[in-house]
Design a protein around this nucleic acid. Sequence first.
DNA 1: TAATAAAATTACGTATACATTAAAAAATTA
DNA 2: TAATTTTTTAATGTATACGTAATTTTATTA
Lengths: 234, 234
Amino acid sequence: MVEVRSGEIGGKVSDKGMSNTQQAVSVLKDLILDNRLASGSNHLESELAKMLGMSRTPVREATLILEAQGLVEVKPRHGVRILSISPKDMTEIYDILTELESLSAELAAKQNHSDEDFAGAVDAIHRMDSTLKNEDREAWAMADETFHSELVRLGGNERIANIFRMYSDQVRRARKITLNLRPKPTKSNDDHRRVLKAIRLGNAEQARELHRLHRIQAKEMLIGLLEEYGFHNV
Amino acid sequence: MVEVRSGEIGGKVSDKGMSNTQQAVSVLKDLILDNRLASGSNHLESELAKMLGMSRTPVREATLILEAQGLVEVKPRHGVRILSISPKDMTEIYDILTELESLSAELAAKQNHSDEDFAGAVDAIHRMDSTLKNEDREAWAMADETFHSELVRLGGNERIANIFRMYSDQVRRARKITLNLRPKPTKSNDDHRRVLKAIRLGNAEQARELHRLHRIQAKEMLIGLLEEYGFHNV
DNA sequence: TAATAAAATTACGTATACATTAAAAAATTA
DNA sequence: TAATTTTTTAATGTATACGTAATTTTATTA
C-alpha cells in the first residue's frame, strides 16, 4: 500500500492553508495524471482515505469535485473509477480546444497587449526551440503547453482558461504516450511563431485561422498515432 | 423561512433513487435559476440544510458540486454566495457557445443523420414559429434553447453538450430579463431554418458560418440590451 | 469618543457513528 | 449440478459531535 502525504510522495511542497479536501483534490489529481492511480482502476473511499492519511469526509468531497472536473467517476459501491481516455475522447477534447484556442488567438489580436504581455509566449517559443535542439521532448511538451496556455491567457476569457486547464489535465496521459512516437515537432514551433506574429500585428482573422490549422493538424497526427499503435484507452 | 422539499416547492416530482446530495444539487439549482435564491446573496450551510430538510453533509457536498459548475462560490464563514452574471460574463459565455455550437453545426452536417434524428430540431423550429405568433416569449425561449440543444446533440460531441448545459444554466437569468426587452425575434427563426437546411444538405462550412453569424448577432443584441438598461449584475 | 484588546460566539472542517442496502457468500432446493 | 433463496458482509450516504479559527461583541484603555 502506498502512503501519500504532502511532503513525502504527494508532490506539492506547501500545503499551508489548504484544507484537507483541497489537498486531497491536489494529491489525487497528481496521482491520476502520473498514472500512479491507473486509468480504469477503482478505489474505495476508505482506501483513498487511508492512502491520504485523512478521514473519508474530505476524500469524499474531493472525489465529487474531481468528478465534476471529469477525471473520475463515482460509482456507489464500486469505488471511484479513474477515467480513461479513448481516441474518441481525444477527438472531442481536441475539437473543443481547437475552437476555443483559435478564438483566443483572435481575441488576443484584437487587444492592445504590451510587449511585456507577450513575454511568456515569446519565452515559451524560445524554450520550444532549445529543447527541440536538445531532443528533450519532455521539456518541449511543457513549453508547448505553456505557449497554448499563454495564448489562452492573452485572449482574456477566463472561462476558456478554465476549460483549457481542465482538458489539458484530461489529455496529459495520452499526450505523454504519443510524445515519443510522433515525428520531430519542428513545424509546431514555426506555427506558433506565425500565430504570435499575427497576434502582435493585430491580424485577428489570420491569427485565428493559423492557429486553427495548427490545431487541426496536431489533432489528426495525435489521433492517428493513438489508433495506429492501438491505444484504445489511455 | 422557506421550507423546500421535493413534493412541495422544490419542483421535481420524483426523487426516487436520488441521494440527498443529488436532490440538494437539483433543488438548489432550481432555486438559483428561478432567482428565489437571489444572485449575490449569501447563505450559510446550516441555513440551506434547514431549508432543504437535511443535514449539513449532503448540502455541503452539493455546494461543492455547484461551485465546480460555476453557479456558486463557497466562501468559508460567509456562506455560499450565489454568483451573479455581468455583461463581461455574458460575453465570455456567449463567445464560447458561439464557437462550440458552430462547430456542432459543422460536425452535424458531416454526419449521416436520418430524418428521425432531425425531428427534435424541426419540432423546435415549429414551436418557435407558433409561440412567436402567439406572442408567448417565454415558450419561444424554451423552444429556442431546445433548438440549440438539439444542434449540439446532433454534433455528437458529448463534452460540448455538457459545456452547453452548464453555461445555459448560468445565463438563464440574464436571458429571461432581456427576453421582453428585445425586438420580436423573427430573424432567429429564419436563421435556424437556414442552419438546419445547410446541415441536412451536408454543407458543413455553410452551416458553421451561418450559425456563427446568428450567434454573434444574438450576443451583440443581448449584451447591448443589458448595458443599455443598466443590468450590470443579474 | 475612538482605538485597541479580550471574550464570546459561531460557522466551518473533519472525524466518527450508524442505518441502509447493494454485493458477495453460503445455504437450500430442484 | 444449477438455480434460487437466505444470510452475511461491507461500502456508502447521512447525521452528529466537536475542535479550530474567524468574526462579532464586549470591555478596556488612551
